[in-house]
Amino acid sequence: MKKVSRKWVKPIIVLLIGVIPVILLSGCSTASPSNPIHSDSPGFFNHYFIYPFSYLIEFFANTFHGDYGLSIVLMTLIIRFAILPLMLNQTKKQMAMKEKLAVFQPELDALKEKYKNDVSAEARKQQQIETMQLYQKHRFNPLNIGCLPMLLQWPITLAFYYAILRTPEIAAHDFLWFSLGDKDLIMPFIAVAVYYVQFRVSQSVSAQVQYNPNKQMAFIGLLTPIMMGAFSLAMPAAVPLYWAVGGIFIIVQTILFNRMYAKPKPKPIQTTTIK
């Protein structure tokens, strides 16, 4: 069996982390509005994750005189601020990794040039060996992309999603121009637009410190907003509202983190083509 190219390993990991939650959100029957959450709902996840979020949604809605839309917006911001330290640590590690990669990227390019006309299995194997030697030389781990914060926020984001769908009071209220419990044709496109902008901002930040941007990552980065838009069209408008607010927060977060930690693009190591 043909091995997966190393250049696709990182994009595949990101794809799994970013897309699988969206698939789970769209297909989990426990999030059905016909199965409302309450304090006696059985199950660990129901009792300790979903119900507390549902309770807080109702609490803030009552504080805002029955405005469940505003409550969802506030809860989304609270959740994002709660996981902000994790994302901050992840950004610091990723920026350091990208800056290190930018320094020796010309050496990798020279290595690719050396083997570009040799498609034999032996040449591919030797190229991989020399690539790993470069990684070891510069103490660079290409798989160190900081996935832990993404994994840790899964239970939180999933629980809040379920809480939105399983809190029946939400469906009976309106927010702005739409009913929170009905499908809306505008909110899904807003959510898609927000996450596309988020993707573009992320790509722009990466380009500032990365000598040779990963085209596979760019392609995969477009899949999440597309899938999110497709799923949003079949969901109550409260869900794309949640996603849109969260996406806007991430855009601002990315810009601020970049200003905090970005350094001038390092000068690449000058190297000649390996012959």
Rank of each mutant, 00 (worst) to 15 (best):
F81T: 12
T131E: 07
G69V: 14
L148I: 08
F231E: 11
A191T: 00
S39G: 14
G246F: 11
P213G: 13
V119Y: 10
G146Y: 03
I186F: 03
F60M: 15
L74E: 06
Q253H: 14
A82R: 06
A244W: 00
A207V: 08
A159D: 03
I190Q: 01
M97Y: 01
A218T: 12
N35E: 12
A159E: 04
P155S: 03
K2I: 15
P240G: 07
A234D: 15
L165K: 14
L148P: 01
V192S: 01
N117A: 02
G66K: 14
F231G: 14
T30G: 12
S204A: 15
M132L: 11
A234P: 10
K7Y: 02
Y211I: 03
G246E: 10
W177P: 06
T167D: 05
L25Y: 10
Y242A: 11
S5K: 12
C28T: 11
K137N: 11
L233I: 14
A244N: 01
P21Y: 03
T272L: 10
D109F: 06
N89W: 00
I190L: 04
S26A: 15
I17N: 02
Q133R: 09
T254F: 05
N212G: 11
Q210K: 07
I250D: 12
Y195F: 09
L88E: 03
Y162L: 13
M260Q: 08
A193I: 00
S34K: 15
M187N: 02
K93V: 01
S5I: 04
S202M: 14
M217W: 05
H173Y: 07
L158Y: 10
K2W: 14
F64Q: 12
L134W: 05
T30C: 13
I20R: 02
I57E: 10
N35M: 11
L134C: 10
I220D: 04
I37D: 07
V192Y: 01
I145E: 10
P168M: 08
Y68M: 12
L101S: 07
T30P: 04
I164N: 02
S41A: 14
F53M: 12
K267W: 00
M227K: 09
I78N: 07
Y135C: 11
Y161M: 09
Y48S: 13
Y242R: 09
A191Y: 00
F59G: 05
Q208Y: 00
Q153K: 09
D174C: 13
F219T: 08
M1C: 11
Q153A: 09
L15A: 15
S179Y: 01
M228D: 06
T224V: 14
A262T: 08
I20V: 09
M97I: 09
F104D: 02
K263F: 00
G221W: 06
P225Y: 02
V4Y: 01
G27T: 08
K7C: 00
D67C: 15
I156N: 02
Y48I: 12
M132E: 13
P36H: 07
N35A: 13
A238C: 05
K114P: 00
S206C: 06
A191L: 04
P236M: 13
S71H: 11
L77W: 06
L165D: 07
I20E: 01
I23H: 02
V4K: 04
Q133K: 12
P42W: 04
I156T: 05
R166S: 09
N117D: 06
N117P: 00
I186M: 04
M150G: 15
V245A: 08
V252W: 05
K112C: 05
P264T: 03
